[in-house]
Write a protein that binds this DNA or RNA. Structure first.
Lengths: 350, 350
DNA sequence: CGAGGTAGTGCAATCGATTGCATGATTTAC
DNA sequence: GTAAATCATGCAATCGATTGCACTACCTCG
């Protein structure tokens, strides 16, 4: 016999072969007796005996071996930009709430919004034979994941969509969110409303900006292009930078509608540094309603998206893909409803 | 040939066999040429040719197959109570920063502090053949993980330790943290200092309570047992409940040293509800310095622990275990230094 | 120039589970 | 009562990579 080079062979695992020896049947019979689907092809008495033996020996199926044969690992990959961004943990729990009860585990990777990293991590996932991928960090143009999906790997994108592809996606009703928020500001009397837009290479940033322009039009005024500044990242630092840019542009404004909460937080901080009060002098709004927002002063008026729900929805679609439905059977677009959350960062126009 | 029952065989993967056929050598030679260690046993010219072929065919090793043979999956399991607790994401990034560059991926699971779930998830991880586990959700007494470690599975615990076992652990200097905090409160003139202790089935809760008693003694006063209330969970709700209990006990106090930030946040909220001002009337302190604390009013005085650093430290120890060092070679205990962070929730004794 | 090395490859077993087909036993049908 | 159908189980190939050992050159040295 060849030498054993395994790592920790202390108590070697119980295998089908052990159960077969114990019960005096062939390993294939054991395999069938333990498979809920194949079980009916086995005499009931024998199946019971095998299951009892499996139980008493403490058998646990080796998913690695099964995975090699069947090409299913019961593991999915989840790609997000950065787990320390508080918006993502609830999403992950939403995904888990659907997948875990069905026996799936997930490998979570952080792309840090770097394309190289994303490509490398995609390989990391494929090398491990994940059955599918939920991708919450795609760019509007993202050839690597599009290629993977083309090859037949089940993929669903979350929060963002990749254009010119038939990858199913779950997003929020950005249009309604921006529109309702703009209306809210109008009702408070604001007319000169600035927009700090998100990165335009992300569908979220692009959709929200488009929605802003459209909403302004719908409300009877063209969007003032000079009052739109575009951030390069969705973070506080960029929020602050964009607000400074607005201030030094010389334009006047009494409200700033930001493409997400972190931009809004940065903007408020920049206002504070200049002694400008939010909301008394300038109203600021966010998008996402990330956790803890109600503990931070001023409490931010924002658009609540379904975080847990988005995770669930994406997982459910992925499941259908995993169960053999093709991208044609599954609806490409899922838009989740939003809800306006009015707190303290918006006030009547001074 | 048997029927192929694989799932998405669209573009079937390139295997060693394909490269072997392409280059006219045996698959074992290909395997060796692609293995950095075995490579030297191969003629340089042949190795180069094989590598070139692998490259041009777009070969990606199948880790499932390799894992079956070698019993190494290059995947580790990470168990935490709940990813939506903001303390954990930085820890995970710390772990990742060490393991990911070495080719490891991690499967993260949330135990929700439920024992059944923990046991089930432990099986989920073992079934997938993880090479080791970083466990940040252990109880002081935790037979299931102790058993796994006994069986030879590399395990490191993080933030908490399991007693009566030789599982290496990485924790914070709870003693120093509590002691420095108590001294800080004393220096502000407080003498009647309450303690909201954490769950005593977690080493963190137990160590911090013990440290509180010891520190009180060291500072020349016995801990007033009536001023100690124990929470059943580390969360805001319990913080509020414990504070109420303190208030209705009839004891007087001017400061509350809490076993972690969430308890402190809950305590402050409960004070606020009763119209008691923190810090003017009662000082409150936390432990951990979780993210966003500086955005929440009043800014919480707390003990900063190394979150990212703890993840890194645990990962480094796990690595040594993975590389064959036994629990005897590795230091069982790693205590990371803490730092007092004085903000606005503590003030001189009124 | 032949014995003893050594280096480079090939061979084949192996990891553990799955599954199409073969086989033998039993039942059903006529 | 025998042919045919049905059922339960065994057999063996397979997934893709790894690796101990065998084998064949060629090399070195005396």
């Amino acid at each position: 016999m060849h030498h054993d080079t395994r790592r920790w062979n202390a108590e070697k695992r119980v295998t089908l072969k052990d159960i077969a020896r114990e019960t005096g049947v062939h390993v294939s019979t054991v395999s069938r007796a333990l498979d809920p689907v194949e079980r009916k092809t086995i005499t009931d008495e024998v199946a019971k005996r095998i299951q009892a033996a499996a139980e008493s020996l403490g058998y646990r199926p080796n998913r690695i071996a099964a995975g090699l044969r069947t090409n299913r690992t019961m593991t999915v990959g989840v790609m997000i930009p950065d787990i320390t961004n508080v918006i993502f943990p609830p999403i992950l729990r939403g995904i888990e709430s659907v997948l875990e009860p069905l026996g799936y585990a997930s490998i979570i990777v952080n792309t840090d919004s770097e394309r190289d990293r994303e490509i490398r991590l995609l390989d990391v996932l494929r090398d491990r034979g994940v059955d599918g991928i939920i991708h919450a960090a795609v760019l509007r143009s993202d050839p690597s994941i599009a290629k993977a999906a083309q090859d037949g790997l089940p993929v669903v994108t979350l929060n963002r969509k990749v254009e010119a592809s038939d990858i199913p996606y779950v997003i929020n009703d950005e249009d309604a969110g921006i529109c309702q928020m703009l209306r809210h500001l109008r009702e408070l009397g604001h007319t000169r409303i600035a927009h700090i837009a998100g990165p335009q290479d992300l569908s979220t940033g692009q959709l929200r900006l488009a929605a802003f322009r459209r909403a302004a039009w719908d409300l009877g005024a063209e969007a003032e292009e000079d009052l739109i500044v575009t951030a390069t990242r969705f973070d506080e630092q960029e929020g602050a930078r964009c607000l400074s840019a607005l201030l030094s542009s010389g334009e006047t404004f009494t409200a700033v509608l930001c493409a997400n909460d972190r931009l809004a937080l940065g903007a408020i901080e920049a206002l504070r540094e200049r002694g400008i009060d939010c909301p008394r002098q300038v109203s600021v709004t966010g998008f996402n309603d990330m956790p803890f927002l109600d503990l931070i002063r001023p409490k931010l008026t924002t658009v609540r998206i379904q975080q847990h729900g988005a995770g669930r929805a994406a997982a459910e679609i992925l499941l259908r893909l995993l169960n053999g439905e093709t991208a044609d059977d599954v609806e490409i677009e899922t838009i989740l409803p939003i809800e306006l959350v009015i707190r303290e960062s918006t006030a009547p126009c001074p």
